[in-house]
Computed example of a mutant assay.
Amino acid sequence: MSTTAATTPKLSRPRSGRMIAGVCAGLARRFGLSTTLVRWIAVASVLLPGPQVLIYLILWILIPNDPE
């Protein structure tokens, strides 16, 4: 019996391909989405009222970097 957890990438911020902190790139890789799509969603969400920037900063702190 195989598990999908073994094939799913761990949530971490990549050291290459970052724009600011790598949060969007890490989320895109973890969920199998396009990095560009996740970045556009993040930018569009900032236009809406809410704590999006605060959430980004929290994720920046909580999501670890890729190991070297």
Rank of each mutant, 00 (worst) to 15 (best):
residue 1 M to I: 05
residue 2 S to W: 05
residue 3 T to A: 03
residue 4 T to N: 15
residue 4 T to Y: 05
residue 6 A to C: 02
residue 6 A to W: 00
residue 6 A to Q: 05
residue 7 T to W: 02
residue 8 T to V: 10
residue 8 T to G: 05
residue 9 P to F: 12
residue 10 K to V: 12
residue 10 K to C: 02
residue 12 S to T: 11
residue 13 R to D: 07
residue 13 R to G: 01
residue 13 R to Q: 13
residue 14 P to E: 09
residue 17 G to T: 07
residue 17 G to K: 07
residue 17 G to L: 09
residue 17 G to S: 10
residue 18 R to I: 10
residue 18 R to K: 15
residue 18 R to M: 14
residue 18 R to W: 04
residue 18 R to C: 10
residue 18 R to S: 05
residue 18 R to N: 10
residue 19 M to A: 11
residue 20 I to H: 08
residue 20 I to V: 13
residue 20 I to G: 01
residue 21 A to I: 03
residue 21 A to C: 13
residue 22 G to C: 07
residue 22 G to F: 00
residue 22 G to I: 06
residue 26 G to N: 09
residue 29 R to D: 11
residue 30 R to G: 00
residue 31 F to S: 13
residue 31 F to G: 00
residue 31 F to A: 12
residue 31 F to R: 13
residue 31 F to I: 03
residue 32 G to C: 02
residue 32 G to H: 11
residue 32 G to D: 13
residue 32 G to I: 05
residue 33 L to A: 14
residue 33 L to V: 06
residue 33 L to D: 04
residue 33 L to G: 04
residue 34 S to H: 08
residue 34 S to L: 13
residue 34 S to D: 15
residue 34 S to W: 00
residue 35 T to Q: 14
residue 36 T to S: 15
residue 36 T to Y: 12
residue 36 T to V: 15
residue 37 L to N: 07
residue 37 L to G: 06
residue 37 L to K: 09
residue 39 R to W: 04
residue 39 R to I: 03
residue 40 W to L: 10
residue 40 W to M: 11
residue 40 W to P: 01
residue 41 I to E: 12
residue 41 I to M: 11
residue 45 S to K: 08
residue 46 V to Q: 12
residue 47 L to M: 11
residue 47 L to E: 01
residue 47 L to V: 06
residue 47 L to C: 13
residue 49 P to G: 03
residue 49 P to V: 06
residue 49 P to N: 04
residue 50 G to C: 10
residue 50 G to P: 00
residue 51 P to N: 14
residue 51 P to Y: 12
residue 51 P to A: 15
residue 52 Q to E: 02
residue 53 V to E: 11
residue 53 V to M: 15
residue 53 V to D: 05
residue 53 V to G: 04
residue 54 L to M: 13
residue 54 L to D: 02
residue 55 I to K: 05
residue 55 I to D: 02
residue 55 I to W: 09
residue 55 I to N: 03
residue 56 Y to T: 00
residue 56 Y to C: 01
residue 57 L to V: 10
residue 57 L to K: 10
residue 57 L to A: 11
residue 58 I to S: 05
residue 58 I to Y: 02
residue 58 I to F: 02
residue 59 L to Y: 02
residue 59 L to P: 03
residue 59 L to T: 06
residue 61 I to T: 06
residue 61 I to H: 10
residue 62 L to T: 13
residue 63 I to L: 04
residue 63 I to D: 01
residue 63 I to Q: 03
residue 64 P to V: 00
residue 64 P to A: 01
residue 65 N to M: 08
residue 67 P to S: 07
residue 67 P to G: 10
residue 67 P to M: 03
residue 67 P to K: 12
residue 68 E to Y: 02
